[in-house]
Write a protein that binds this DNA or RNA. Structure first.
Lengths: 142, 142
DNA sequence: AAACACCTTCGAGTGCACTTTAAGTCAACC
DNA sequence: GGTTGACTTAAAGTGCACTCGAAGGTGTTT
């Protein structure tokens, strides 16, 4: 992999990864992201750090909490022996997110039907007297 | 629709809809849910209220905020003339939720690949030397 | 020399949606 | 007559993840 020698100061890095400098320092405090320092104690980051932040954003994006993220980072630091545990964390995160999606889709289905019902009302293809409940019922009855 | 005459006091109603009594009073303050009162000023709810709370929980379940929910309720109270606006709100909520799902699934794909990569490492079907980035790259390159 | 970007600690503020407490009252049930 | 469950208002607390500001410093660029 090329370009490993490029150094980014916090402002530039923040823009690259889409976080604020505040958040990057906060994450560093929390042990999620590390930085190196130049001769003036100014933080710098590398391309590897970009990939790492990218990855933790994927984890956060699936709903993983900061506390779990911290645990993940600690396990990672502890070496390959913790791979099964890390794998399990990811699997659980994945399963939870998939369950969330399934639930969300259930709610969306009702929303979609309400929208259809509104359309029916406006176009008068649904009897004015039919309530949304009755309309929904027609689907539940198959 | 039958059984419309059944009255539920707040405790029973809370269990039926899966909210706390606190939350129900809070929602009432916020104008999301209404209740009636008996001769002793004790709140009661009906089957219609169960359906209404059910519906707002679907909306909340798709990520609609309380503020938007309040607006929706106000529009509803304003009569059928607001149906297009309500329809638009639901459509936007639906579109946003679908975009969220799409993003979530993108994150999940990376998670899934990391899990596979861990499996490959443990089973030694992936070279020890191949980083997750390189592994991911194999997919991105098609 | 001013402007700018960075550094430090650390405490306070933000937004959202509840959640709980306090303190006192009321009425039905056993 | 005690327990239970309801009522009121108003205020404070919770959890999460930032987000910001103060106050004072260093170093680089215009």
């Amino acid at each position: 992999m090329a370009e490993e020698q490029r150094r980014y100061r916090i402002g530039e890095f923040a823009k690259l990864v889409g976080l604020s400098t505040y958040t990057l320092r906060y994450y560093e405090d929390q042990g999620l992201v590390k930085s190196q320092r130049d001769e003036n104690d100014v933080r710098y980051y590398t391309d590897e750090d970009i990939r790492w932040v990218g990855f933790i954003l994927h984890l956060k994006g699936t709903g993983m909490r900061l506390n779990d993220l911290k645990r993940y980072v600690r396990l990672r630091a502890a070496g390959d022996a913790t791979i099964p545990e890390r794998r399990a964390m990811l699997q659980k995160t994945k399963d939870d997110a998939e369950a969330d999606i399934a639930e969300l889709q259930m709610h969306l289905q009702v929303l979609g039907r309400k929208i259809d019902w509104y359309d029916g009302k406006v176009e008068h293809t649904i009897a004015d007297s039919e309530s949304f409940q009755e309309y929904l019922q027609r689907f539940n009855d198959k």
